[in-house]
Amino acid sequence: MSKIYKGIISVADRFIPQPLRPLWEHPAGPKTIFFWAPAFKWGLVIAGLGDVTRPPESLSIPQCFSLSISSFIWSRYSLVIKPKNYSLFTVNLIVATINMYQLGRAYLYQQSIKK
């Protein structure tokens, strides 16, 4: 698989315009996993935004909690590694924020049931 990816990158390399070269050649650019991991993680953001309209009784508190905590950890990690990965930081911060909001909704719902 690595040879296929390297072949695609070498072909695409010839078509990248000069103004986009700094992004293309960046240590966290499209040639590396540092670019693609956050790009695919935006799927979690889309799923989280879709869940905002779900009724709070159908939300999973453990799932929201674990996504929030792991996203905060990955946000911190993305600023410690070299090269710093601001794309990874941004996507994880948004995932954490959405899930903290969902966690609050689920918690308030659980508290209203107890009353």
Score class of each variant (00 low, 15 high):
residue 39 A to K: 01
residue 37 A to G: 02
residue 81 I to H: 10
residue 88 L to T: 03
residue 58 S to R: 02
residue 66 S to C: 11
residue 71 S to F: 05
residue 90 T to L: 13
residue 98 I to P: 05
residue 18 Q to G: 07
residue 51 D to W: 03
residue 25 E to N: 13
residue 35 F to E: 04
residue 92 N to Y: 08
residue 70 S to I: 05
residue 94 I to C: 10
residue 36 W to A: 02
residue 25 E to A: 11
residue 37 A to C: 03
residue 104 G to P: 03
residue 4 I to M: 06
residue 91 V to W: 10
residue 21 R to I: 10
residue 55 P to Q: 14
residue 94 I to N: 07
residue 26 H to G: 05
residue 34 F to D: 12
residue 75 S to C: 12
residue 100 M to L: 15
residue 32 T to S: 03
residue 7 G to W: 00
residue 34 F to T: 12
residue 100 M to S: 15
residue 44 L to N: 15
residue 29 G to V: 06
residue 4 I to C: 01
residue 22 P to H: 01
residue 31 K to L: 10
residue 19 P to N: 09
residue 37 A to E: 12
residue 87 S to C: 11
residue 74 W to K: 01
residue 67 L to H: 04
residue 93 L to Q: 11
residue 63 Q to V: 06
residue 102 Q to K: 13
residue 91 V to F: 10
residue 49 L to E: 01
residue 30 P to G: 03
residue 16 I to D: 13
residue 78 S to L: 04
residue 10 S to M: 06
residue 80 V to D: 14
residue 10 S to Y: 01
residue 108 L to H: 14
residue 99 N to G: 02
residue 18 Q to L: 11
residue 94 I to T: 15
residue 30 P to D: 04
residue 25 E to M: 10
residue 81 I to S: 13
residue 102 Q to M: 12
residue 19 P to H: 10
residue 79 L to P: 08
residue 52 V to P: 00
residue 26 H to Q: 14
residue 112 S to R: 08
residue 85 N to C: 07
residue 57 E to L: 01
residue 29 G to I: 07
residue 96 A to P: 01
residue 35 F to R: 04
residue 76 R to S: 10
residue 84 K to G: 12
residue 82 K to G: 13
residue 14 R to C: 05
residue 34 F to P: 00
residue 25 E to Y: 03
residue 18 Q to K: 14
residue 107 Y to N: 11
residue 82 K to S: 15
